[in-house]
Write a protein that binds this DNA or RNA. Structure first.
Lengths: 192, 192
DNA sequence: TGACAGTTACCGTCCGGCCGGTATGTAGCG
DNA sequence: CGCTACATACCGGCCGGACGGTAACTGTCA
């Protein structure tokens, strides 16, 4: 039977806090993302919150770890579906970014994360550490690192564009970006 | 002769404030970018600062206008050097981003701007208004809008990567990105 | 099994500083 | 005199974090 104890397993509480923190980030945005707001949403006191995450930065680190793990998992799972081994990770990185629906929640969370990056650049290293698990620079891989880098830059640019609405990228255009991955695609940006 | 008057031309003072504000952003970063810091750097009282820019958001708007105008000017000047008229703006956008040396100051300023975007999304519209002056969607332009968009996404992704050090992009890789603009370039990301 | 100690999860309150913004005064200029 | 470019002094809210507790769980030894 479930013990109605007030005391919970610590990692379970941690996970719940991160979950609710992402909700707060999604709903309140970067300005509303405060420790008080997270504590209130989690129905846990601020003291308890700071017990599990000794600082706001620590909480953000937890969120980044969560998001980073999810993203790496998505990309590697997508890559595993690619029959061609070489360069699959870079292709999967772009495919996931292009295909994943960007919800309003994602946008808000992304903005909070980006604000955290800008305010505390050390957090970027943590994100980078996750992204480095998606290897694209296999020396045996005949697919050029240049092209792999290009795909990632496109994906990152698209992500930022979605966050801020810089470009209205239609579904057709998203598909067109994926056409880069079809064999022998030629850039026409210079050939009228 | 210079009049040692305590009273200056207002737009001159505004320009000086923006100039110093950019310095503060470059040196202090997003957390250190406060009205007091800007006022101190400008050797102007905080009251005077808020006289010219009635809020911190207004000051950021001024900075964004400055940076946006500079960037538009760079891109359009670069585009004017392109003999091929079609798609020149998109190509110039990428070329400027790839070629312009990214100094430490640029990085710090970029982070401050990005933080401002994330904290106050309305500022993004102002930046977007400047970028929209670089037209890439001329209906008479036979260069595909898809490819033009791709070039801008690459440039934006590279900018963000430079800001946060996400990728170590060597000079050779930067050159390789420009090779996209040579006629008939073929993506090899799928052809081992 | 029970008593006692040490540890850990959690609470609620309060503080202190930072920082955006205001209110009020003043000097130069037309 | 009125307008504008300033200065000085000050306010007040927000928010991260500290702190002193308390309750629950985990030994451990008799």
């Amino acid at each position: 039977m479930d013990t109605p104890s007030r005391r919970r397993a610590p990692d379970q509480t941690r996970a719940e806090i991160i979950d609710k923190a992402l909700e707060v980030a999604a709903e309140l945005g970067a300005t509303g993302f405060t420790l008080d707001a997270v504590a209130a949403r989690t129905r846990v006191s601020k003291g308890a919150l700071l017990h599990h995450f000794p600082s706001k930065t620590a909480l953000l680190e937890g969120m980044i770890d969560h998001l980073g793990a999810m993203h790496v998992e998505s990309v590697l799972a997508e890559a595993a579906r690619d029959p061609e081994p070489y360069g699959r990770n870079a292709r999967a990185y772009l495919r996931v970014t292009v295909n994943e629906p960007v919800t309003l929640q994602d946008v808000s969370i992304g903005r909070v994360v980006l604000a955290a990056f800008a305010l505390d650049p050390s957090l970027v290293l943590r994100w980078k550490a996750w992204m480095d698990r998606i290897k694209i620079d296999d020396p045996n891989d005949p697919v050029g690192a240049d092209d792999a880098l290009m795909l990632r830059l496109i994906a990152d640019g698209l992500w930022m564009s979605d966050l801020f609405g810089l470009h209205q990228v239609s579904d057709e255009q998203r598909k067109a970006l994926l056409s880069l991955l079809t064999p022998g695609h030629t850039i026409t940006a210079n050939e009228p």
